[in-house]
Design a protein around this nucleic acid. Structure first.
Lengths: 117, 117
DNA sequence: CGGCATCCCTTTTGATACTG
DNA sequence: CAGTATCAAAAGGGATGCCG
């Protein structure tokens, strides 16, 4: 869904959707809000995502100032990801939406593949 | 972005994104939250959307119980769309996200193509 | 380990023309 | 007016292989 990358936006909501509109982006925020994670750990926490797509969406989120990427010059390499202040604020703004989704799931009587919610 | 249509969902946020994850869906909600609209009026309020895509996304939102479609058997035909209770609740859950987007737009110094915000 | 590059397929979105 | 049908383009996504 990320299709325009930047303006013009019809409204403010449009601008926000542009930032979180990748298939895995909301889930990346959800995982990183819990704690800082390394690439492989993040990948394992998102069942089904491919390396390429995860790396790509992380780079876009980094470019948008949502995620911070820290590289440690070691062998084997270590790269850590966490949310910036902007990212934490964005995730907070998604809370209400998550609650709506939770109510909907209970109505439809389905359960998440991950615990926690 | 609407790619699975229903479960499995990794988390509640995932379920919500599945419902609003069409390119124009958040904007449709935004337009219908203002007031009930006819198809043509809705189309004019969403600059750039094609008839086909608008009709398609409206049908999906209707199937998901977000939008209500009312047909009047007249000539010329008249079809009106508005939000269901579920839809109104969903839009309310998007408020915080819209505010985040508004702050971001001000930081990036860009303005919406539509007034109002 | 944490990538990037390449190739390929599917889904989504779009332009246009046509209909009740 | 409010769509549907058809055709076409693009974006998103995935599999694999290579590299420091």
């Amino acid at each position: 869904m990320v299709r325009m990358r930047n303006p013009p936006y019809i409204c403010a909501l449009d601008a926000a959707m542009d930032v979180i509109g990748g298939k895995w982006k909301p889930l990346i925020l959800w995982a990183l809000d819990e704690r800082l994670r390394r690439f492989g750990e993040l990948r394992r926490s998102l069942p089904g995502v491919s390396e390429k797509v995860l790396a790509q969406q992380l780079r876009e989120l980094e470019a948008d100032g949502i995620v911070r990427r820290t590289v440690y010059d070691e062998t084997p390499p270590r790269v850590e990801y966490d949310l910036t202040e902007e990212g934490a604020a964005l995730y907070a703004a998604l809370t209400a939406l998550g609650e709506w989704g939770g109510r909907r799931m209970r109505q439809l009587d389905i359960t998440p593949t991950h615990g926690k919610q």
